[in-house]
Design a protein around this nucleic acid. Sequence first.
DNA 1: ATGAAAGCGCTAACAT
DNA 2: ATGTTAGCGCTTTCAT
Lengths: 325, 325
Amino acid sequence: MANIKDIARMAGVSVATVSRVLNEHPYVSEEKRAAVLEVVRSLNYSPNINAVHLIKGKTNMIGVIIPYINLPYFNSIMEGIAEEALKANVHLLVSQTNYAVNKENELLNMLKTKQIDGLLICSRSLDWKSIEAYAQYGPIIACEDAKNDKISSVYIDHYAGFRQAMQLLLDKGHRSIGYCLGRGHSYNSTNRRRAYEDALASMNLPIREDCMFYQCYSIEDGAAVVRQLMDMPLRPTALLVAGDQVAAGLIGEAIKCGLRVPEDLAVISFDNHPISRLFDITTIDNRLTEIGRTAFSLLLERLQNQEEPVRHIELPFRLIERATV
Amino acid sequence: MANIKDIARMAGVSVATVSRVLNEHPYVSEEKRAAVLEVVRSLNYSPNINAVHLIKGKTNMIGVIIPYINLPYFNSIMEGIAEEALKANVHLLVSQTNYAVNKENELLNMLKTKQIDGLLICSRSLDWKSIEAYAQYGPIIACEDAKNDKISSVYIDHYAGFRQAMQLLLDKGHRSIGYCLGRGHSYNSTNRRRAYEDALASMNLPIREDCMFYQCYSIEDGAAVVRQLMDMPLRPTALLVAGDQVAAGLIGEAIKCGLRVPEDLAVISFDNHPISRLFDITTIDNRLTEIGRTAFSLLLERLQNQEEPVRHIELPFRLIERATV
DNA sequence: ATGAAAGCGCTAACAT
DNA sequence: ATGTTAGCGCTTTCAT
């Protein structure tokens, strides 16, 4: 394959001039520029990017640790990241980890070996202690509350969100409230469960394990919850549902089963995806896309200025009242 | 960050020795090896991979163009690829394209700039003409029938598969047969549709557009087809369903709707995923994982030996008769 | 405006 | 067994 020397020789210029043309630097005469471009075109030449990476000391590529690209929650974050990356002309190395630590370590190691310039973490299995050891090799930004002095973060206060949703339900008179979550033991889920229990405790209400549903991700999962509900002697009158898709499936199935929403079953969901508008679901907008956008911007700042301090940005959520409460 | 020179100096050896230790070459004394390893450990050193890539002229990384990682069809292919890549110690740069050409071009360009050593294509939007132009930069292997003299391929004859399934249904006496596919205009879908029409024509049976369903990917989609079926005055008595998930959803819903399978509705599906065994579905094993495995092996061969010729391997499918016909 | 040359961090051929 | 050294292909000073 041709290299920059070949191009220089064939165009009758020096390699420096070829490089200038390729990188759109000023101070190149029109004739030489044209000559170089012509040779480049005729040979269908592209620079060896590995040489560029080596000399520049960076790859213009950042890694993204994301458990499941297709889950709406992460998909929304990814949307914000991709949007900003496109603007900044930064390439994304997206690794769908399925929460496997070896996948996470792989990207961490790529940061160390300079294959990527920085790392965005949407959600992870590794603890922050293991991750922060890599912060010396390049900026790492989390899309969840990291509480770490080496790793910047952008997040929503899920405790407060859940708490506010609970309050709304309690104010409406509900005394038997359940919830649907995804993973039971993630950082976010733990906070949400705490908010749930604290809200109940504040009213001296009992905690009922049979009203807590986990592994809820899809429309189907939501429908399945309703089928379980139908068999319960003491059905909860309201449900907090993490994820509009789950809520939609749940409401659809509830109606099929003859339940009235919100009279027989009130629902508050989270994320404010388009589907929640379609079903007129009361939801808490977690501003996921903005989290992604902001996280990327934070990373870019640190890339451009090493001295940029670690920051923790909490984005305010927003309750959107619609017809399911 | 420390480089190999620093390590050499601190360990009191030459850079060559450090390189030998790092790459586990023979002919290094135990003392020097230990000294080097100790410095490497204490400095937490990793080689700059871009320099390695540059001098070696390769990255040990291959790209994978895959439209949707989470679709069972592609997931199975990916499984085979990942399995072999792990064995060969080759890294995968998996790009979920959603069939967007710019994503496909991105990987093609990475091949050209030597960021990846080769490319595996599970399914694509770009035509082979555009793709083959990049074959000069590194091996490209397709997991579908490529009919191209620059690009090797591993594939199943979907025409024959559909044709055989149709014949089984016709032999059983069915005269009103429909099908469920994903994308309507992909190469595979076109072949399947042709097989479907040819089979019908061979019996002088009419082609009914209302029995052809598209955009079928999930359990939910299958269930939705049944709901449409229920409203039809002239319901087909049998269905060819591309994808066991769709078939499972379809059968589940059919039973709910009071249809007997196979008496009222016969089903043949494709891929032989675990779920088809669960539902006892008659299916055609498309050996997707083996396609992935074989495609990777083909790529590896071409990587190790430039002279390896372009090959086209057709894997035989296998009809698995169970209870839905 | 242009070119010569140094050097990014590494591997491997060659010499000893 | 170990070291010296010539590149890999590019960007970027520094001269001119």
